[in-house]
Design a binder for these strands. Structure first.
Length: 311
DNA sequence: ACCCAGGGGCAAG
DNA sequence: CTTGCCCATGGG
């Protein structure tokens, strides 16, 4: 049986963090004595349950979990960095415990290639279909590991398309080939400036400025990166004086970086979360936000055949 | 600079 | 059940 333990987690809201659109594979589950989450970090099966300032876990290690959820980020410092901007401060205070994660590079990069023109619920389905079809099954969680680049490259575009990827299948397959061949090395970007790393990411098929910024923020620890989607555009637009001339997405990104400061990506995440949950009042209507389906049981998912489809 | 394909879940009718 | 809407990227 996998090791169970408990660790301290200062300033943390596990559910809010896992539902904030950074990852797409964690499933709610009743385990470890109550409502928790099951999933994986890389190929480590993990089940988690938070009780106040304590985090119960099965699988992984305190180091692995602390690093993944970035318990080293000082959220108070981040909140204070935007104390001069009332809406940002308000959002930051409403989202206490929401952390910007530090995800494995390939898993995050590939997952966000799935994201364009898709809502979170569907990205979750695509992620699960890819994991089930081409990822390594894990003992202790129904969620398989995210497939290696080589596995997706070998699978071929047609098979990826069967996972409901649509036109994203072509982008993901092409990118998987580049990574599997070593022509693109995700690790090589770690030492680059944010701007240089962004330029490299944008060379990959299926990755534009918005997706690149998501990857920079959620995997490369670039806390200043601001992914501008329609929501963030709407939010940033609402901060500008009425009647001022319309900005392009690139201009809004620069505006956001300047307005929100050195942790602009973090603050953006707080504003985004408030807008999505309807706590931040915006001119336009909001879309529904449904909780992911409960994981049925670990045993019922074990031993699913490669390539089978989730129903 | 502008225009539009593309696809599947979901809300509204 | 059917229609309309959502939306980042890439290519024209």
């Amino acid at each position: 049986m996998m090791k169970t333990g408990v660790m301290e987690c200062p300033e943390f809201n596990l559910g809010m963090t896992l539902e904030s659109g950074q990852t797409f594979h964690w499933m709610p589950v009743n385990d470890l004595g109550g409502e928790g989450w099951t999933g994986c970090i890389g190929s480590n099966a993990i089940t988690l349950r938070q009780q106040g300032g304590l985090l119960h876990y099965r699988g992984g290690s305190t180091q692995l979990i602390s690093r993944y959820f970035a318990f080293d980020h000082d959220l108070e410092v981040i909140r204070l960095s935007c104390a001069g901007h009332p809406a940002s401060l308000k959002a930051s205070l409403a989202c206490k415990g929401l952390r910007v994660m530090r995800q494995p590079l390939w898993e995050c990069l590939a997952s966000f290639i799935l994201s364009p023109m898709k809502q979170v619920a569907h990205i979750r389905q695509m992620s699960l279909a890819l994991r089930t079809g081409f990822g390594k099954p894990l003992k202790g969680t129904p969620v398989p590991a995210f497939p290696e680049a080589r596995s997706l490259a070998e699978a071929g575009e047609k098979e990826l398309r069967k996972c409901g990827l649509g036109f994203r299948a072509k982008s993901l397959h092409a990118t998987a080939l580049l990574v599997a061949s070593g022509e693109f090395q995700p690790e090589a970007l770690r030492g680059m400036s944010t701007a240089a790393a962004r330029t490299e990411l944008c060379k990959l098929p299926g990755i534009g400025r918005k997706v690149a910024n998501c990857i920079l923020l959620f995997a490369y620890e670039r806390l200043e990166a601001v992914p501008v989607d329609v929501w963030v555009a709407r939010i940033l637009g609402s901060f500008r004086s009425p009647g001022s001339r319309k900005m392009t997405l690139d201009q809004l990104e620069s505006y956001g970086e300047r307005l929100l400061g050195p942790y602009a990506g973090y603050i953006q995440q707080y504003l985004f979360h408030q807008a999505r949950t309807g706590e931040l009042v915006l001119p336009k209507k909001r879309v529904p936000w449904k909780k992911p389906a409960l994981a049925k049981s670990i045993t019922s998912h074990r031993g699913r055949k490669r390539g089978s489809v989730i129903s």
